[in-house]
Write a protein that binds this DNA or RNA. Sequence first.
DNA 1: AGCACGCCGACT
DNA 2: GTCGGCGTGCTC
Length: 830
Amino acid sequence: MNRYAEIIVKNNSIHTDTVYSYKIPDHLEDILKPGHRVLVPFGRGNKPVEGYIFRIGRITNECPDNMKDIVDVLDENPIFSENQLELIKWMRNRYLCTYMDCINVMHPKGINIKNYRVVYPGEKISRISDAEIYEIIKNLSENEKKVIESLLNGKERIEENKIRGIENLTELLYRMKNKGLIQLKWEYKSRKNEKKLCIVSISDEIENIDIYIEKNKIRLGKRQKDIIEFLKLNDSSEINDIMEILKVSSRSIKSLSEKGLVKFRYEDYYRRPDSVYQSDRKKIVLNEEQKYVSETIKNEMFDEGKKPYMIHGVTGSGKTEVYMDIIEYALSQGLDSILLVPEISLTPQTVARIKNRFGDIVGVFHSQLSEGEKHDVFKSVENGDTRILIGARSAIFAPFKSLGLVIIDEFHESSYKSEKNPKFSTIEVARFMAYKWKITLIMGSATPSVEEYYRTENGEYKLLEIKKRANEKPLPKIETVDMREELEYGNKSIFSRKMIKEIRNAYEKGEQSIVFLNRRGYANFVSCRSCGYVAKCPNCDISLTYHKGINSIRCHYCGYEIKMPAECPECKSPYIKPFGTGTQRIEEELQNLIPGIKVLRMDKDTTSKKGAFDDILKRFSKKEADVLVGTQMITKGLDFDNVTVVGIVSADMMLNFPDFRSFETTFQIITQVAGRAGRAQKDGKVILQTYNTEHYAIKNAMDYDFESFYRNEIKIRKAFEYAPFNNMISVVISGENEGIVKRNIHSMYNSIVYLLKERGYTDFEFMLGPNPCPISKINRNYRWQILFRDEGVEINLLKGIIRYVCITKRDSVFDKNINISIDINPNSIL
DNA sequence: AGCACGCCGACT
DNA sequence: GTCGGCGTGCTC
């Protein structure tokens, strides 16, 4: 025994987030590899817990002297490759999270360890006669007697949780242990969460089942005869099917197997979620631009020094076709692919197209799957049954054996940044994989993010452009309406005359329109005109949104909901009314202004039920409605032939959002929504309402001029030292008691300043705060924040100090019941 | 975090 | 002597 392993122990605690060393017993020496999942004794009680081998080495005197032995290996093969282990370490460091945070996202749990304490006789009652035991029991307390009796009934062994009717059992057991009455040991079972199919067929050795039965004088019951007859016709069948069709029990099938007549074969069952959306299989020929992009990437696929690619293609440029062409090539070279999409449930059309083209080797992965389902999908990836995986951000971690290609579609979308630990950026992870593992990385968008586009300018990515739409149609013309002029004219409605005219025209011609507004509900706040009262959520620092159908006001953060008050709760005046506009109101106004028009609404409220999203899309594409009103959801990848008018109700709402990315988001959303129009043969038209007709984000979007927008925006980013010129770290402290939260964030601030001073820093300009977050309360939790900018400070030192203060020394710096959230380059700092 | 264990005070 | 409660310190 001269080898040991460095192991991460499975524990949801930041206190155990380190490497532990264990000795490798001789019988496991040839088996264990880095990435293997093992069982190790942990803590004073040697409780068996799951661990992950990160490194194996020869035992030297550097090793801790109290190493314990690895108990067992949990899987036949390592669950992580060396590459993945490297990625785990990198992520933990990059996103200031724990090893387990990373492991959890990379390995959906399929097998759980169940561990429990078991009671055994202690030395005092071992190897002695019944009479002697009786003598001892006589002097024990009631509860102690109970334990010993159950122990003797249980054949000298009983699991703790099988002993019933004793309060504070664990403490009693420890006392009995100290007296030598009993021993306590930890034991475990591993429970598989993998669903298997059991395939039943007639045993291979039997040539003719009827003759065999007669020869061997086997007697069969009626049910059993039925099963044999069924199997003669059906060759092999799944056991549950047989039970259902023939109405027989599993017992009858088992007894056939005991008689040697049938055999079982187990197959993996992948709970593969199927998209219901169907699309026609069209033979597509790539046009010149598309072909150029595709060929460039294919030609360089095996170049060591290739860079990641950014495809900047206008909306409707047929990027998906290009992706499929490249995926097909990769496949022909024996390479597997991952295609990431922002939100899988919002892109059923894309999924359907790819499944149609590539069939069964396409898998789908997204966050709404259960842990077991995720495990199954990853399992089928590992086995090689799935060779193309479409999914949301965590699909990037799929354990492909020969991954060659990662495509991030609509890479500017914010959903590629995780909000949960590890708070990883999918683009950063993909880039890590591209550089370290020589994978082809393609990022595609019609509206690249300023940060990533900056990298193409720096030469980090290779830029490939598609400037023409696949259908050769020009991009729909965007016309702005100055809402100030509308107001001067006396139009106080939410719609300009022009927008209504265009929607009406389309309606009369039998064409469809899409109206976009990024706010759901009926009205965004409820206020009293006489005293100025605004209805707020008692749990969050958010004004409540009015929902008309149910006549109530609701918080979009925590779900709090009350009936719409008839009078102002403050001044009792009846002038309390909803203000502002949401999608519900748009729907209603449209129906008032254009009688007879049919409107479908698509937002979080109408798509919360499973399948509702698909349903609305189907109904709209079957022309059951003339207008589709919706929020963000309708900006992504929707493809309708008959849509000729797109209305953007208020560009200002996005423009005035308190975030440094708000201009960028405005530009992106306008471009994306506009791209929904005129996708087939008919021309499209876009009406954009705004009070800021002169703003560059709006003017550049009108001309589809990304280049100019980028030039304008990057100047501002540079002037204020925002991304991409800077990294930002946000630390948010939250808790139910505002005073405690405040005290905690101040002591954190002081600790960090203290440590920085020790390192010779005197200037702390790069620390902003502590301040209350813009949304100062969510779900009863008060929130305070410190923002760190990567300017005038060594970033790795700063990260090290943050980790030390917020994680390593958490207990001495912070109170118990507060939450700490650390986010590197967060999407929003609200 | 989760666990083992030790110490204290209340109660038979 | 027993029982329950709580605080503490450690995890290869």
